[in-house]
Design a protein around this nucleic acid. Sequence first.
DNA 1: TTGAGACTTAGAATTATTCCAACTATTGAC
DNA 2: GTCAATAGTTGGAATAATTCTAAGTCTCAA
Lengths: 153, 153
Amino acid sequence: MSKVKSRTVFVPPQRETTPVGEQMATSGLRFTPQRRHVYQVLIGKRDHPTAEEVYLRAKHEMPEISLATVYNCLDVLVRCSLVKQVNLNRAAARFCPNMSQHSHFHCEDCGQIFDIDGESQSRRASTRLPRGFKLHQLEMSMRGLCPHCAAKQ
Amino acid sequence: MSKVKSRTVFVPPQRETTPVGEQMATSGLRFTPQRRHVYQVLIGKRDHPTAEEVYLRAKHEMPEISLATVYNCLDVLVRCSLVKQVNLNRAAARFCPNMSQHSHFHCEDCGQIFDIDGESQSRRASTRLPRGFKLHQLEMSMRGLCPHCAAKQ
DNA sequence: TTGAGACTTAGAATTATTCCAACTATTGAC
DNA sequence: GTCAATAGTTGGAATAATTCTAAGTCTCAA
């Protein structure tokens, strides 16, 4: 993953009362071993894996984990704002542990996804919204050529 | 559909040599009766239908059209930049004949999708892109509450 | 007129995701 | 601590959007 700037620092959770665990607990959810592991898998390699890829990586350390559980964990992590879900094409959803404000650049040639830092995107966007709309979340995605593929052509 | 401002004006194609038809022909594709009809269905009601919904609407005037053809037509229209494909959640893709620069606002309460005019979005976005990236297309989507649903709460 | 390539069609196949039912784990009230 | 209630996990089945396939039709250009 090409990352321009990072603000999210992962503190590995040791007990249920880590900041991450608390963020869940307030939603009435539990920070189970499976959920912690799925989260660590995402943090461990900061690309944009699909649920299937997360499943394969998670199985290395936790072979008995099921795909259904991985879907459940990802869903919970997204709902707790610990992970972003990225829907670029109609293909499988991808998951991104970078919670700083950023958008995604999808290279049409090599297929890679890049995080692009986008400061104050949502503030700018909401100033453009017609009166009455209440913005909760903004997602910006781009397609084109990454520097490497653009240079080749 | 709540439309703030529109720049796209539809000129109904009469012969194969309409502007719309030419836009296809240059790609080695044909502006067949099915493709024209699917396009007119989209233009006719400017909301954001799924492929299934387009299929149902198209069948009124052209009962023998198949779902596979509708998928083919939508794909071709998107590739010829006559229609935008909108992927909001993981649900069915939606199609939008508004080709002016705009983004989509998805109301979390009523589920409606609104076109929000966004002038010079892509110019601003590309100035934020790190050196070397070549932007072809930008998509911005928002979630939150539409004026009607926000007022209710 | 004919051959090549594009298009349409119905139905089958694919695939990401969700659902289900049985079982296990955790929490809070007593 | 015990126990009921609730939450989570698991494997497999089900779902639903989309793509593929094969056969037939249409269009264009030589």
